[in-house]
Structures are given as C-alpha cells and as structure tokens.
Design a protein around this nucleic acid. Structure first.
Length: 423
RNA sequence: GGAGAAGUGGCUGAGUGGCCGAAAGCGCUUCUUUGCUAAAGAAGUGAACCUCAAAAGGGUUCCGCGGGUUCGAAUCCCGCCUUCUCCGCCA
C-alpha cells in the first residue's frame, strides 16, 4: 500500500500518477472512508477515555457501598456507549483498509508513460536476433520434443500445462536450475529453500491478494495457496520485523516450482513450453533502504543479464510503461529472449522495484542512523524462469541433424555436448 | 490423529479482577568515575493508531490470535493458532 499521508496531502499528484496505470480505484471514496474512520476513532477514544477516568475514580470507592452501586449503574450506560462507538470505529477502519488495499503503487517518475504493451520501450538488446538460425524450429515442432517433454502423459496425471520432463530434458531442467543458483550465489544472493505453499497473510503482503486470487491454486481446507512465485514466501521471511540499516541490502535467491492457474489464457501463443501451470524458477529478492532501491534494481537487472549472456541467448530489455507494470510495481524491466524457431521474444524475467509498497503491507522496516523506523524497499527479479529459457535454447541451438547443442555454462551438470540424439 | 502442559516487552521472568504498559534481572543507549579496557554508579530504553500545521504534549489500543462475561480483564469463560512432552503414524 502507499503512504496514506501522501494520499491525504498530495491527492491530485497521486491521482494523476495512478491514472497512468491500468488499475482503477476511486481515491475520493478512499479519502472519504479515511475521514470517517478518523472521526469515528476519535469519538470512540474519547468515550473510552471518559469511561476509564470514571472507572479509576470508582476503584477508590468501597465495594458494595450505596454510592458504588449507584456508580455502577451510571457506568453501565457509559460502557455500552463506548462499546458501540468502538464497534463503529472498527467497522469504519475495516472498510477503509479494504479500499486502501486496492490502491496500486505509484509508478516511478523514470517509467515511460504508456497505455499498454505497445508502449514499452526497448532499452537495450544483446546478441543478434537477426542472425541466421538456419535449423531453428519452434520447440514444439522438434520431432523428438513430445517424447522428451511429455504433455500427453502430463494431461493424464494432472491436466493441461503440467508436462513430464523425461530423461535428459529432466537433467537439463536441473542443470539450468543449478546454473541459475550458482550465478545468483556468485552475485551475492544467499540461497534459501522456502515453503511452496503460503497463507493468506503472505499473499496479501506481496500483493497477490486480494486482486489476483484467481491466479493461484488454493487449498481451501487449510487456507493455503500454492505459490505463483518464490517472491511470496521469500519476501515474507522478514514480515513484521525490524531490520538494522547496516544489514541492508539483503540479497536472497530461491529455487521453487511455481504454480499459476492462468485461467482462460490458452491459445495459439501458449503452445509447448511458452506457458505452463507449473514451472521452475530461480527468484532473486532484495530488501534495501529507501534511498538505494533504484540503484539496486539496476544491479539486479545486470545480474540477470549476465546469466543470459552466459547462455548465449539473444535478449532485449524492456522498460515497462506505466500502463503495463503490475499492481505493486513502481518500476519494472522485462527481459525477453529471442526464440528463433517461433521468431518470438519470450519473457524470461521481470525485474521490479516495489519501493515501500509491499514492505508497508508486510510490516518490514528498518532503523536508520537516527534510530527512526523507516519502511524498507523490496525488489525482485526472475533469475531465471526455466521453461522459456529452455524453449529458446532448444530452438536456437537446434542443429541440422536434429540435435541441440548444450551451452558451455551447463557442461558442469550435463557433461554432454548435445541433447536430442536420435535412438 | 489422541492425551497433557504452556504462550507476558529485545531476552529471562513475576504477576489470578481495579493502584499493571506491566515487578525484577539481563541486554541496549547516554552520562559519571577511569591512563585504556573491565568494573561500579546515575538516568533512559517498545509498537500501532488518533489528536496537533509541525514539534512538544495529550489520548486510545496492544500481555499468542479472535470472541464473550464485567462498571472494570494479562488475570474469568469460549473458539482458534503455535510450541513443548507422551502416544500413534510416517519420508
């Protein structure tokens, strides 16, 4: 959530900033709820204070004496009134909180203004997407593809979008995960292995709830959600904690499977590995102070770019425009690799600064040099998501003989130069 | 899953209906003493929200969480969560 003081004091600026994002919210309603909430709280507190004062007075009286009993009678009414006012205040506060939670984060001033994905700006490209990939095919058209990444068996076991990776494809996934983790560690991110189901509080803190409830798989019995990204458990590691400024920035990485329902999004562009309900990803997460988060975002992006370069996959960096960045995002870069078979750019990483938006929801603060409590900033980025990297790798590295060349950086785990040998 | 016990401030821990936001100790901060360190002494030492132009000040809430009883709850009652012990099950 944003800083309520900002909203009260600088409403017009907030209004115009949010108007550039794709989320709708009624600031006037929120401000109205805020005003009535405060009024009711003040009223309730005044009643409670009066009651307390009278009570203290009463503590001095002899129990059971006539004046005591008289006073009790009086106090009954007072107490009932205070209780009612308190209930009103509580309801008003809850109404405000619910509405307040619907306000998206403000885009940073450096974010290009735009309506949607066509207004994103290509910040840079690496490698040569125009190069000849004479043998490239869409990965799902490679003759052996369906026997090594088996969607049909996945349908049988689970449903669409849950493939089996068989044999060397399974090992290749594992190699990618290991490589990503090794890169993250080399860049100073400490590895954690988090829970892959989370409770509602965690999902609310990072912004999946209340808005994107339909995107997650839920265990109704336990009230737990399968994580759509490791961002959720990892960011919540420090929920409701106070950090020391000297600890920051804290950099963590985590490998997890990710689960996304992606309801209603099946079609031509989601064949094969392009979009799955379950996929593997290494996530990078940072907690920083309020001053350095934008700087840290650039470093985060550079770290991910370095990993893509070692994989020798052509990629481009998009500066996402105001109309295309997410609900809790202040600034976002998307990294897309070029898949030469499909002749498409595939998003493999999203590097984002959430400023204090998630941390305020999550109660993550730090003590600065003056001993003051400041809301921390949180950032994260995929580093990287496996299936689309794998898709691009299969397509771009496809040889004339139908085999796929394994990049040098994966040799430590794969120990073979090619996959997809014909048997 | 069954039986029992427990959850108090940064930590240990006292507190069984009003004088308790909470004893005491530890820790931490500042000061004094000191050649330095140690030791000793003194003072201070949570958070959220409301009020206030701001600061100061004032107020409300917070003793696992949520309800209830009562004029009044850390203290009594109910539900839940978590931890520990024992039993069962189990990678």
């Amino acid at each position: 959530m944003i800083d309520i003081k900002l909203l009260r004091e600088d409403t017009d600026r907030i209004r115009s900033a949010i108007a550039t994002k794709k989320f709708h919210c009624d600031l006037d309603t929120v401000l109205g709820l805020d005003a009535s909430r405060r009024e009711k709280i003040t009223e309730a507190e005044r009643a409670r204070a009066a009651q307390k004062a009278a009570n203290t007075e009463m503590a001095g009286l002899v129990k059971g004496s006539p004046e005591f009993l008289e006073k009790v009678k009086e106090m009954k009414e007072m107490a009932a009134q205070a209780k009612d006012l308190e209930a009103d205040a509580k309801a008003a506060d809850a109404a405000f909180q619910a509405a307040f939670l619907e306000i998206p984060n403000l885009p940073d001033s450096s974010v290009p203004v735009g309506k949607g994905e066509n207004d994103n700006v290509v910040a840079s490209t690496w490698g040569d997407a125009e190069a000849a990939f004479p043998h490239a095919l869409p990965h799902f058209d490679i003759p052996w593809f369906e026997s090594r990444i088996d969607f049909a068996r996945g349908v049988k076991a689970t449903g669409a979008g849950f493939p089996f990776y068989v044999g060397e494809m399974s090992r290749l996934v594992r190699a990618l995960v290991n490589f990503f983790l090794q890169e993250a560690q080399a860049n100073g991110y400490e590895e954690v292995l988090p829970p892959i189901v989370v409770n509602a509080e965690s999902a609310t803190a990072t912004g999946q709830l209340p808005d994107k409830e339909g995107q997650m798989y839920v265990d109704e019995n336990e009230g737990l959600y399968l994580i759509p990204t490791a961002e959720v458990p990892v960011t919540n590691f420090y929920r409701d904690e106070i950090l020391e400024a000297g600890q920051l920035p804290i950099c963590r990485c985590a490998y997890t499977p990710c689960f996304r329902r992606e309801a209603g999004s099946w079609g031509a562009h989601v064949r094969g590995l392009n979009r799955l309900h379950q996929f593997d990803k290494v996530e990078l997460v940072k907690w920083t102070d309020a001053e350095s988060s934008m700087e840290e975002l650039e470093k985060l992006r550079e770290n991910v770019e370095g990993t893509l370069q070692k994989l020798e996959l052509p990629y481009r960096v998009l500066r996402m425009c105001t109309g295309d960045i997410g609900f809790p995002h202040a600034k976002q870069y998307d990294l897309e690799v070029f898949a030469a078979g499909q002749k498409r750019w595939l998003e493999v990483s999203s590097c984002s600064n959430f400023t204090d938006f998630q941390a305020r929801r999550a109660g993550i603060r730090y003590r600065n040099a003056d001993g003051k409590l400041i809301t921390a900033h949180t950032l994260n980025g995929s580093g990287l998501a496996v299936p689309r990297v794998l898709a691009a790798l299969l397509e771009n590295n496809l040889q004339a003989d139908g085999r796929v060349k394994v990049p040098e950086c994966l040799q430590y785990w794969m120990r073979q130069s090619y996959v997809g040998e014909c048997h």
